[in-house]
Write a protein that binds this DNA or RNA. Sequence first.
DNA 1: GGCGTGTTCAATAATTCTCTTGAATAAGAC
DNA 2: GTCTTATTCAAGAGAATTATTGAACACGCC
Lengths: 228, 228
Amino acid sequence: MADHGAKTALYDALADSAKALANGRRAELVDVLAQGERSVEELADEINQTVANTSQHLQRLLRSGLVESRRDGTRIYYSLSSPIVTTLWRTMRRAAEEHVADLERLAADYVGDRSKLRTITRDDLRARLRDGDVVVLDVRPEAEYAAGHVRGAISIPIHDLRSRLGEIPDGSEVVAYCRGPYCVFADEAVRILTKKGVTAVRLEDGFPEWAGARLPAAKANRQRKFTS
Amino acid sequence: MADHGAKTALYDALADSAKALANGRRAELVDVLAQGERSVEELADEINQTVANTSQHLQRLLRSGLVESRRDGTRIYYSLSSPIVTTLWRTMRRAAEEHVADLERLAADYVGDRSKLRTITRDDLRARLRDGDVVVLDVRPEAEYAAGHVRGAISIPIHDLRSRLGEIPDGSEVVAYCRGPYCVFADEAVRILTKKGVTAVRLEDGFPEWAGARLPAAKANRQRKFTS
DNA sequence: GGCGTGTTCAATAATTCTCTTGAATAAGAC
DNA sequence: GTCTTATTCAAGAGAATTATTGAACACGCC
């Protein structure tokens, strides 16, 4: 093959989007950004890194084209540049789950023991939503609920759940969800609710997966401060 | 978060499958392995690298769990360990196509000018197969055809095409395919056939994509006879 | 046993990646 | 204009990655 410099360059470029995700911290960033746009500082906080380091990772993602940024006053907000990025991240995760040795143990180390928690699949939830016999509970921060949520879900961020238990209709069965399979908010919610005598299960994955499967979702307008 | 060592470890592990693909040479390897298993030497040849270097890349892939190996006498054959790996590679490629600046130019540098070549989508081909008014031509090496091909396709490796033109029924319209969008065998086939006065188009992607979409495929060693 | 072939291993240098530190920049508030 | 805040830049140390080289190993064959 005469042009194998061109072939090398092409495959190097194809590998670039993998390189962008080939780092645990950047994977965390993409995972958070799958919930909606965030400022650098918020992201740094989510991934427990310095702002400078987070900024550098974000710029790497930016160069790869997987994320976009916009300025609003003094803040810069990053977001995923297309649904393909969510798909890519989800596919990567599935591949890791299937093939990376020890992933199960690592996941258990992080999310704790889930053996006592009942879970329900997206399809099951969809069916139950049609029957209308279930309360869907979004326990992510309010801004993430506003950016997109399961249609019909109510929003009670996990940190407010104990004090807002009254908002959950008596005698109802609750399905809680959060960011995704490696997010522990919904686990915590199920534990709290169960302790209070409310029947509760967790959706096995989170909102991005729901939206990615084109299941019914809704969007509320995020309140934003405008300066003149 | 108390356990953010566990979180770090988990996301590092999730990023591992991306790391495995985060190299142009390994991307080439996966691309070839998507056609079926290969020995180290064959792979080294396909990607224009030394055997030692190829072996190292393969062992990296092996450690990541994305490929498997088996020994047959003095040779060791590598193969993708599950269909998810093909999906992952395809998704990565789509993400790169959408987001990596310059990818179009790099692709054009490698595959040459395709503007004169007519292409046809998987769905179109499927419809035409049902109507039965088309000859599907697999121009990959015979071993790859044997490992799996579009159901009903005939096999003429690209290097034999000129001398085996007679096997193509007179007056038929040909759809040629090969390994995937970045493989140039089918392009070459269409050019050869067109020059000989045979109407020919290329399938826009290759066999792994066809199989991945669960379209009719066959695995037999024997190719079907073309009947009316 | 020795020989040939296919593959892996081990050591190395060049390069790239990652995180840290502290300074620089950009926008808004005063 | 100065001050404050959010973000980026620049430089550097330590680690990981990559291609190269030559030796070592495993298997089949005589």
